[in-house]
Design a protein around this nucleic acid. Sequence first.
RNA 1: GCCGAAGUGGCGGAAUUGGUAGACGCGCGGGACUCAAAAUCCCGUUCCUCUAGGGGAGUGUGGGUUCGAUUCCCACCUUCGGCACCA
Length: 794
Amino acid sequence: MNSYNPNENEAKWQKAWRESGIFKADLENSERPKYYNLTMFPYPSGDKLHIGHWYNYAPVDTWGRYMKMKGFEVFQPMGFDSFGLPAENYAIKTGVHPAETTRTNIDKMKEQIAAIGGMYDLDLNLETSSPEYYKWTQWVFLQLYKNGLAERREAPVNWCTSCQTVLANEQVVEGICERCKNEVIRKNLTQWFFKITDYAEQLLDYEGLDWPEKTIAMQKNWIGKSEGVNINFKIADSEDSLTCYTTRPDTLYSVTFMVIAPEHPLVEKFISGTEYEKEVRKVTKEIQGQTDIERTSTGGKDKLGAYIGVDVINPANGEKIPVYIANFALMYGTGVVMADAHDERDFEFAQKYDIPLKFVVSEDGSEIDPKDFDEAYVDDGILFNSGEFTGMNNREALPKMAEWIEKDGFGEKTINFRLRDWLISRQRYWGAPIPIIYCEKCGEVPVPEEDLPVVHPHIEDYVPKGQSPLAGAEDFVNVNCPKCDSAAKREVDTMDTFVCSSWYFLRYPDAMNSAKAWEKEHANKWMPVDMYIGGPEHACMHLLYARFIHKAMNNFGFVDSKEPFKRLVHQGMVTKDGAKMSKSKGNVVSPDEFVEKYGSDVFRMYLMFMGPFTDGGDWNDQGITGVARFVDRFFRMMQIDGEADDALVHGAVKRAGEAVEKMNFNIAIAALMELTNSTFKTGMNTGQKEMVVRVLAPLAPHLAEEIWEMLGHKESVFLAEWPEADEKFLVTDSVTYAVQVNGKLRATLELAKELGKEEALEAARSLENVAKYLKDADVKKEIFVPGKIIGFVV
RNA sequence: GCCGAAGUGGCGGAAUUGGUAGACGCGCGGGACUCAAAAUCCCGUUCCUCUAGGGGAGUGUGGGUUCGAUUCCCACCUUCGGCACCA
């Protein structure tokens, strides 16, 4: 009997697959139904492919192979999300150009992906940093621009005064620049936004999507639709007013102060030249050293703020109340918040700055005083001291008060979203240039589509000097205006890499031919993606951006599907010693040595056998020998001629098949192990072997091909049909009952399937270990669950 | 802090709709083969208790519903993901 040699065998089949092109999808005229099986493409990091990537790509490939055997034309492309910050940071540190490191990393990762022996089509060569690709990223930008979804506004960035550069959040550690350890400030720059908020309502519609409930919940919360009221507070001794948004107009009578974001444009106007200016500026600076999370957390960080010397009138009771800047007021929406004793943060703030507070809601409507409390009263209850609303339940009063506010003309009902517009400008070198030209006469001019791509200049000096590195490339910056031909300058910022990754699935079908235009027909043939598998960390950003761009493209008429990803599944994260793998922690585990030692089949099966792939887990190679043993044992078992019990074989085929269908690959493998343990003694006949090896095929493709060939087949096992168990072997005439007394198991009993309740109970009563509990006892209840349980309650 | 998950033997994990907790694998113990070792094969393996048969406890913690809860409800603890410039 021959043992299995994985390395030799895997090389043989990978070569055969490459030569026959069996896994190349026919993108044009296949008669099989299409199946677009997609994994989130990787960033070509210096860590290369680690175990986490395999943990994603192995199940995706198993699923793709399964769908192929189910009769689909499976398109399973692979590309690289190759623009991004790490390559640029590495370049600044070492002087190696990002283009060079990106190339090296991609080439190495391609080799590693090939070693999986998957169906992934790497010949598509999709790389977001190539001009063939970013030409179309720029084209997408222009479509959004033309349709009014791209515009420039001021927005703050993290600015290191010493490095003279914008920092990513990741590079700011406790308010300090990670590189030079100097102070980081917030600085306003004019930047490009995509108006994703215009699509907020549409993005809340998940009709027809097979997505995890938790992902939908997270996105919905992220979009954060709320119904509330914009209320105008007149500024005392002035004609102007401050508008705030609130979902709790029922607490209006308790409002005793207002808070405003320190970044609010009016703050500067209010304070300049006043006695409050110095203090407000000092506190503003302090606040800007905090992250948004620190600013808005309750509990933890202290509240920070200052009076700005302005008072407004509470429109409900005419009281004059002070306005403060506060760290927890962010410059989103109106940037103004009405504050009262019924909100935790407001309460804490008022306590710190000695601002008077009032309650207007209590459990039973009796008057309570904040002085007697050390925290906010946030529960619902009955209103008091609230004019005509006194005595009402606050939740019932809420819509009535909104009506009243609107009718009396000091506010209006408003729908608000937590979602913010997407800031896409990056003051960086390694990204796709934004295709805009600034002309003194014509203003902001989009680059004509026929002039795309705006080629990213190859520069040697990408060390930041106060503005985007592209500003230093004079040949790039200086250009003639496309409209009037006079001297003009290019936009020097590049696009957020999330822009590149928010439409790549639309490019794959055309990626083979780099010159090819956007072909609606092609996009329609392959979209939407039937299965999208990637990490849950992308739930709110990438997955929302991609839906937005796709919906915009649909609205512009470039693709007919309304959603990009019909079905979504998240793989879990693989950690090492409890931490996310990263070069900086030095805990990156490479798959290479395992593939070399055990082969790709064993390694991928071990990753899937570790547990449900949607769970992830901590990496440990201890159990891999179990899978390696199984592979060898299976191979030897397949050489034994004999005959196994059909009930056993068909039962395993059914169980494993159902598990694969549900993507419970660990269970599928366990079912095959169990079967192998039995058939190792009996052997199987050819028909039985042919069934079982087809079930194994998506899990261990190389091994299955070899056995399929041994069984005399000339064509690939992946051209064979997925086997279905024959039910006739699975019917049994007896079942095992668990017999319980007071819910505790006392015996088991094998009975005929069709036996009725009375006979079954009788049989159970006569069991010795049951009878002893029933004797001298009063049987209150008898339970009979057909096929499962017989129970007595005494 | 907010949003979303997850906690089951020494370890990874399994368990249709509330119905025999621990499948499968690792590890460990015992045995076979061997001069020996490796490999392989066979048996056992939640814990405690006990004379065979059994008995008791047990799915993060504390309560609850139920004849019966890993599964449903309430409160809590711990760990992980995300929080808008890492991707």
